[in-house]
Each structure stands twice: as structure tokens, then as C-alpha cells.
């Protein structure tokens, strides 16, 4: 697995914006994750490091620190459930358990069809509408109740079928 030439050029284009190449690391990781369908494959880490002239362990350190970078493949619909204080108080953990049941996956796992993955994330900054779920980079699903879970999953499946049908 290697970085595409296009991606390399895209990362290089960021260099002039910062005093040193290592500062581009976060941006580069975002680009890589985007191109790879939602995760940063560990095999690419040495290449990213070489491009930014840092050590591979520096890349892994940063990629593992931030929750938004994934070290394992995620589903086409990646469900990020906030379980910080406000959401937890409003039943977020129950939502996670229900999602696990409906999808047959545990946090960090990928459903058999590759469609779904669930992750507990840190505060999404929407405590007033807790509990909150974010699918991929889309707008938040707010005030999620336990009963909404099945509908939500069905909707995401339908959307996927529609997309494939097109």
C-alpha cells in the first residue's frame, strides 16, 4: 500500500503554509484518512513520516492520540456516539448498547457487511441536545432516544441502497 501521487502532491502543497514540515502532520493524516475511506492504515505511516521528515513513531503517536484518526477500518457509516458527561447523563451509553445489539458490532469493530462501525467519542460540543450522534462528517443527530436507534440504522441502510441503486 502506498500513498497516491495525487495525495503526496496535496500534502506537499500544504508545506508553504507552515514554518516546518512536521506541522503538516494533522492535515496530512486527515487527507490520508479521507483517501483511504476513513482510516489510516499503519503501513502508510512510514511513508507519511518520510514525506514530513519525521520518525514513524511520531506519526503513530499523533494518530493514536486523536480519536478522529482511526487505526482500523471503519464502516461506510461510522457512528460516533458522544458519551461524555451530558450525553452520558441523558442515556448515551444505552444508545451505544442498543446500536451494538442492532448492528452486531462492539465499539471498534466493523459490521460483517462493512457498512457500520460504532465508536464512543469525546464531547462533540452539543450538550444542549444530548445525546448526540455524528455519522461520518455529517450534521449531528440530536436528542437521540433509545427508540430512535432502529429507525436511524434503517435510514442509513436505505440511503446506502439508494446510493448503490443510482
Amino acid at each position: 500500500m502506498t500513498l497516491s501521487q495525487q495525495l503526496i502532491e496535496r500534502i506537499r502543497a500544504e508545506f508553504p503554509k507552515y514554518p516546518e514540515k512536521r506541522a503538516v502532520l494533522l492535515t496530512a493524516l486527515h487527507f490520508v484518512q479521507e483517501e483511504q475511506g476513513g482510516w489510516v492504515p499503519p503501513e502508510l505511516i512510514p511513508e507519511i513520516a518520510a514525506l514530513l521528515e519525521i520518525h514513524p513513531i511520531d506519526v503513530k503517536e499523533v494518530a493514536s492520540f486523536y480519536h478522529m484518526f482511526h487505526e482500523h477500518p471503519v464502516g461506510r457509516s461510522h457512528l460516533q456516539v458522544c458519551t461524555n458527561l451530558s450525553c452520558a447523563l441523558r442515556g448515551a451509553r444505552g444508545v451505544v448498547r442498543r446500536l451494538e445489539g442492532v448492528l452486531g458490532v462492539r465499539p471498534g469493530e466493523l459490521s460483517a457487511d462493512g457498512e457500520f462501525s460504532v465508536e464512543e467519542v469525546q464531547c462533540l460540543g452539543s450538550c444542549g441536545s444530548a445525546p448526540v450522534i455524528q455519522v461520518n462528517n455529517e450534521p449531528y443527530l440530536e436528542n437521540v432516544a433509545l427508540g430512535d436507534v432502529e429507525t436511524l440504522v434503517a435510514g442509513l441502510r436505505g440511503r446506502r441502497l439508494a446510493a448503490v441503486g443510482e
Binding site: P42, P56, I57, K60, E61, S64, F65, H67
Partner: peptide, 18 residues
């Protein structure tokens, strides 16, 4: 430089590159 802290908060752990 073989060792680092990977992860954050509750997931923090010492590790090496494989």
C-alpha cells in the same frame, strides 16, 4: 526513540512500533 505514549487519557499506553 523506540518507546512512546500512544493513545489519550484512558487509552494512554506505552508502546513501540511493531
Amino acid at each position: 526513540d523506540e518507546l512512546r505514549v500512544f493513545g489519550i487519557g484512558d487509552t494512554s499506553h506505552i508502546g513501540t512500533l511493531e
